[in-house]
């Protein structure tokens, strides 16, 4: 009996040692890849920063309105630094994924393949989100300035409506891209958008009849008032 126990224990230790023997080099390789990932990431980051500075990427971004859009979105870093950071993380994650694959753990491998399949969708969604956010800021600002110049009393409300209109459309597109409750998102967006338009139509058509009349009258009176004869040029 004791012989049997001994064999079992020895076998268990042998298997464990074998397992550790197989796992440890792979784990060390993972660590090494992570370290290399950090180093290569830093190197690419430094190189990219030099290139971006050489081509005056920040001043180009200023001119294109990207810097102010980032500031408005709460990002305090310069556009070149943001791009630099993204480059670092892309490189690091590439090495990290490779490292996890080397471990050859079934769960990790499955997870990796799911992540890799999902990655293009995630990138596309991020791009849509970035474009939508920039467009929302741009058009909200344009609407605000135009409405103030036209002396429209609800200028800020108009700008906010434009911003959130574009942002909600963007959000619906992002969720669709990510495949999260696709049908529900499309249906919810259509219902919400249609509902808002219908509500506005009813509100202005019925509830705001008197207000619309008053606004039109006031606007016409303003036009009749003197003040349009000044020649600015």
């Amino acid at each position: 009996m004791s012989e049997l126990w001994r064999e079992v224990i020895v076998e268990a230790f042998r298997e464990t040692a074998k397992g550790i023997g197989v796992f440890l080099p792979r784990f060390l390789l993972l660590i090494a890849l992570l370290v290399i990932g950090v180093l290569v990431g830093w190197a690419i980051k430094a190189l990219l920063l030099r290139i971006l500075r050489a081509v005056r990427f920040d001043s180009i971004s200023d001119r294109a309105g990207l810097t102010s859009a980032l500031v408005r979105g709460g990002v305090k870093r310069a556009p070149s630094q943001v791009l630099d950071l993204i480059a670092f993380w892309v490189v690091f994650l590439f090495f990290a994924f490779a490292g996890v694959n080397i471990l050859n753990l079934p769960a990790a491998t499955d997870l990796m393949s799911v992540i890799l399949r999902f990655l293009p969708h995630l990138l596309a969604a991020l791009l849509v989100l970035l474009a939508g956010w920039l467009l929302a800021n741009f058009f909200a600002q344009a609407a605000l300035i135009a409405a103030v110049n036209a002396q429209f009393p609800g200028a800020r409300l108009l700008a906010t409506t434009v911003r959130w209109g574009i942002l909600s459309l963007t959000l619906a597109m992002v969720l669709t891209q990510l495949g999260i409750a696709k049908e529900v998102v499309v249906a919810a967006f259509s219902i919400a958008f249609g509902g808002v338009v219908l509500a506005l139509a009813i509100a202005f058509g019925l509830g705001g009849r008197d207000l619309a009349k008053e606004l039109l009258e006031r606007s016409l009176q303003e036009r009749v008032k003197p003040g349009d004869e000044i020649s600015h040029l």
Binding site: V148, N149, Q151, E222, K225, P226, G227, D228, E229, I230, S231
Partner: peptide, 11 residues
């Protein structure tokens, strides 16, 4: 020349 100052200040 007629000028509507009030509207300008309002702007």
């Amino acid at each position: 020349v007629q000028v509507n100052v009030e509207r300008m200040v309002k702007a």
